[in-house]
Simulated scan of single mutants.
Amino acid sequence: MWRGMIVTAVALVSLVGGGTVAWRHYEGAVDQVDLLGEAARDRPPPRQITIESAPRWSPPPASAQPGRNILLVGIDARPGEDQAGARADSIIVLHVSAGGDRAWLVSLPRDTRVEIPGHGTDKLNAAFAAGSQGGGGRAGGFALLATTVRQLTGLAFDAGAIIDFAGLRRVVDAVGGVDLCVDVRTVSVHIGWDEQGRQTAPFRLIPPTFRPERIPGVRPQVYEVGCRHFAGWEALDYVRQRELLPDGDYGRQRHQQQLLTALGRRVTSAGVLGNPLALDRTLTAVGESLTFDGNGRSVTDWMFQLRGLRPDAVTMLRTNGGQFNAATRNGTAFEQLDPVTLDLFAAACSDSLDAFARKHPDWVIQPS
C-alpha cells in the first residue's frame, strides 16, 4: 500500500517521462499539511523516558542519522471520526538508504506499550486518537503519534503520510486489482453474507478484548491459501484481518507489507504504465488519498529524490521476530519491543539494516 502509494508513484512519474510537469497536474490534489511536529529531523528530540518498551540505547542525533525516514500511518476511520477519535490501524517506518537505492519497511505493533507525551502510558495506536482530540484533527493525531514513535525508536523523520483504508481501496481498484498469494487461511470478521445473499458482518466483536463471536446464519468471506487476483474491496478486507489469524496482528502486518509490494509491482507494470487511462486513474487516486508532510519539501521534490528506488529494492522486516511478546499491566495486555527489535531500530539510525537482515534472516518477510 505505502510503497505503491508513495515510492512507486514517485517512480511512475519519472518513468512516464512527464517529470515535474506531469505530476504537478496531480500534486494539487494531495493534502499537504504539517504533520511531523517534534518528530521532524530538524526539531530537538522529545524528552526520553524509562519504561519497558523504551530504547535502552542512545540513538545518534538526527543530524548524524544517515538515510531518510518516512512515517506512514493508515487509519480505519468510521463516519464521524475523520477529525477526532480514530486510532492508527497501521504504523510503518520506511527507511531509505543514504544512497537512495535501497529501502526497508518496518511495521510497529500498534499495541506496543509506550508513554504518550502528556497522556500517560497506553498502547501506541492510542497516540493518534489522543492527538486528534480537542480540535487537533488528523494533523494533531499524526504529530503526537510521530513524537511517540521518535521517542520509542530514536528515529527522526524526514516525511510523513496518512491514508485511510478507503483511499487504499481506491488505489487498488485504479490499477485493476493486485495479485497476492494467501499464506494462511484467513476468515473475515467484517464481511459475510446472510441466507438471502445480503452482505453483513459475520462476527460480533465483544469488548473489552473484542473477541469475535460468530453470528448464526451468516457465511463469512474466506481467503483460502493460494495465489489469486484481488479486487480493491477484497485486498482491503484481507489486510484488515487479525482476530482469527494464528499470529494476530503480526500476521496482519505481514499481509499489509505483502500488499504494498504487490501494489508496487502492479503500479510499475506495463498494464498501468502503458495505458494512459489507467495511469491517469492511478495518479488521481494516489493524489486524492494522501495527506502528506515533506518537512519543507514538496511531493514533487520527494518524487525526484526517490526516483531511483524500485519495488524489488524494498525489504520488509518484522518486529519481535513476528512473535508475541506480551505483558499485562493493570488488566490490559500490551506488546513490548524485545532487545533485538531495539537493535533493528539502532541499525536504522546508523543506516545498517542490510547487516541486520543478514544477521537475522528469519526477520525478513518474503514478498507475496
Rank of each mutant, 00 (worst) to 15 (best):
M1A: 12
G4S: 13
G4Y: 08
A9N: 15
V16M: 13
G17D: 01
G18S: 05
W23Y: 15
H25N: 10
Q32H: 12
D34M: 12
G37D: 02
A40L: 08
P44A: 13
R47W: 08
Q48A: 13
S63D: 14
Q65S: 01
R68N: 01
I70C: 03
L72Y: 10
V73E: 06
D76M: 02
G80Q: 02
E81T: 02
A86M: 08
A88S: 15
S90H: 04
I92G: 03
H95C: 04
W104N: 10
L108K: 00
P109C: 03
D111R: 00
A130T: 04
G131R: 08
G134S: 11
L152P: 00
A156L: 01
A161T: 09
G167L: 14
R169D: 07
A174P: 02
G177D: 03
R185W: 01
V187Q: 08
G192I: 04
E195Y: 11
G197M: 02
G197I: 01
Q199L: 09
T200H: 08
R204M: 09
L205H: 04
P207N: 09
P208A: 04
P216G: 11
R228Y: 02
E234H: 06
A235Q: 11
L236M: 15
R242W: 07
D249E: 04
R252C: 03
R254N: 09
R254T: 13
H255I: 07
Q258N: 10
L259A: 11
A270M: 06
V272I: 14
L273C: 06
D280T: 08
L290K: 09
T291W: 10
T291I: 14
F292V: 06
F304N: 07
F304H: 11
L306T: 09
R310T: 12
A313P: 08
L317H: 07
R318I: 02
Q323F: 05
Q323E: 14
Q323A: 14
F324P: 10
A327V: 14
A333H: 05
E335W: 02
F345M: 00
F345P: 00
A346E: 14
S352H: 10
A355H: 07
K359A: 15
P361F: 09
S368A: 13
